[in-house]
């Protein structure tokens, strides 16, 4: 997976996050703040969560927040919010402390990014290393050791 998907500022740590819903919003906002999506994308992702429940909590402790392709998306990008204290989402994979957010403007880049993300996260140990990391620098290091330029 390309390291350029994670723009500077797209990885953050949050302390005392009150709920999974807030975590998803904060993670999606990282995409907005780094210029990858318009603000409307945040409510689009919230709508998915409201409609379908926490199904994007796809592995123990890990969520991948996203909505459908939309005009609110400017470029393919990813963000990661690490919660210092995990939250419950109602999923079988609770509690959650890694909230990824992703967006892509067209289906080709969307599929590419998802395939690459899936491959990345199935590598041995990476999720545990991320779950154990507590500083942004450490998270970026873990990701960079697996990402390509």
């Amino acid at each position: 997976m390309k390291s350029s998907y994670f723009a500077p500022g797209s990885i953050a740590i949050q302390e005392n996050c009150p709920s999974f819903q807030v975590a998803v919003t904060s993670a999606t906002l990282l995409l907005v703040e780094t210029g990858s999506a318009h603000k409307g994308y945040v409510s689009e992702v919230q709508n998915v969560l409201e409609e379908l429940g926490p199904y994007f909590v796809v592995a123990p402790g890990l969520a991948i927040a996203h909505a459908k392709l939309s005009a609110a998306i400017q470029r393919p990008a990813m963000a990661l919010l690490k919660l210092t204290e995990p939250v419950t989402s109602g999923s079988h994979n609770d509690p959650v402390s890694l909230v990824f957010a992703m967006c892509s403007p067209d289906s080709i880049s969307h599929l590419e990014m998802l395939a690459e993300f899936g491959e990345l996260m199935s590598r041995d140990g990476i999720i545990n290393n991320l779950l154990n990391a507590s500083a942004e620098g450490v998270i970026r290091e873990i990701l960079s050791s697996h990402l390509i330029e």
Binding site: V48, Y55, V58, I64, L111, L114, A115, G118, S122
Partner: peptide
């Protein structure tokens, strides 16, 4: 299968194929 057929299901498909 996932909610919209565009996110989780694509991840699941890729890893199921592997």
């Amino acid at each position: 299968v996932c909610g919209a057929g565009i996110g989780t299901s694509v991840l699941l498909k890729a890893n199921a194929e592997r």
